[in-house]
């Protein structure tokens, strides 16, 4: 297992290095970064000064190494727009998104596991049909619309939840539900199909023949083996939610990482884009890394193969 973790860690670091090269190259291909970083009113002297400050008069490989070492230290420079260190903006927004997604994740899994199991075990019945309708709706209704509807119902009509902010647990209910619904639908559908495969397998038949209780067959044998694909999907999806929950963050004025990334792009805030993309990459890679470890824990065959 240790060897497996070390190998996956090295792979993650290599992927991040490749990502850093891609960002470094793309930024230089898309234009002169100094021109992008300087204010519109800068002079020629300002240009030369910033060029030397950023080390852009040095050979390209040296420039890359400087960029890389600064990034490792968390130094992405200052935002063009706000003059605020990029790392500070990331530090302020990323935890907000992680908190929100964690709650969404709990909601999503708490609903999807029983839903997926019921749908699989009661295949073809009214329960299965209901579960399919619910998951279908959850995936097809736009998150943005769900958010606005929740606002209308729980804020305007019932007046039991706050419209925006993130100070109390009540603030988490609507945005996390919004994100959780989509996750729930995906996981429940995946779990259903995976469970159906497992329930049809020889070892489950054997367990039943041996007289193992049905609840043990479902919860111990079938569920554990069905969770592999769910873990893989969930791990990937959690990273996507952290970095890309922009619609939900917009509706609920949630000061998260998605809105920061959006602001960086629409404002062409080059240092912020660089910081945000690398951080998003690191989040996705980390999620993958931990998912793989969990995967190996759940499925001993992977450890053996390594």
């Amino acid at each position: 297992m240790q060897r497996y973790i070390v190998i996956r860690f090295i792979q993650t670091v290599i992927t991040l290095l490749i990502l850093s090269i891609v960002i470094f190259t793309l930024v230089r291909m898309s234009g002169d970064p100094v021109l992008l970083m300087l204010p519109e009113t800068a002079t020629e002297e300002d240009y030369e000064l910033m060029k030397s400050q950023l080390g852009l008069n040095k050979p390209v490989y040296q420039q890359y190494l400087i960029f890389l070492f600064d990034a490792v230290k968390g130094d992405f420079g200052k935002s063009i727009r706000t003059r605020k260190p990029v790392i500070l903006s990331i530090k302020e927004t990323l935890p907000n998104s992680i908190k929100l997604v964690t709650v969404a994740f709990v909601i999503g899994f708490a609903l999807s596991i029983p839903l997926g199991i019921v749908a699989a075990v009661k295949k073809g019945t009214v329960w299965d049909n209901m579960a399919r309708v619910v998951t279908g709706l959850g995936q097809s209704i736009p998150t943005f619309w769900v958010g606005l509807m929740l606002l209308q119902i729980f804020v305007v009509w019932l007046r039991i939840l706050p419209a925006s902010g993130m100070d109390t647990w009540q603030h988490y209910v609507m945005p996390a539900t919004c994100l959780g619904i989509f996750l729930m639908s995906g996981v429940a559908r995946l779990l259903r199909s995976s469970m159906l495969d497992v329930l049809d397998s020889e070892f489950v038949k054997m367990a039943r023949i041996k007289g193992v209780r049905e609840s043990v067959v479902i919860w111990k044998h079938a569920l554990r083996n069905s969770l592999l694909s769910v873990v893989s999907f969930g791990g990937m999806y959690i990273a996507i939610m952290v970095t890309g929950a922009i619609l939900v963050e917009t509706v609920f004025a949630w000061p998260g990482f998605g809105r920061l990334a959006y602001a960086a792009i629409v404002n062409q805030d080059f240092p912020l884009i660089q910081g945000v993309v690398l951080t998003a990459g690191a989040v996705v890679m980390s999620a993958n890394f931990f998912t793989d470890i969990l995967y190996a824990y759940l499925d001993p065959r992977i450890r053996v193969q390594v």
């Binding site: 606005l148 606002l151 209308q152 804020v155 007046r159 419209a163 509706v251 609920f252 004025a253």
Partner: peptide, 18 residues
């Protein structure tokens, strides 16, 4: 001055006194 990009959210926040 509260940043609230979505008009529907501002509307809801006004209605409940936020």
């Amino acid at each position: 001055f509260q940043l609230m990009p979505e008009e529907g959210s501002r509307d809801a926040a006004l209605r409940v006194g936020e």
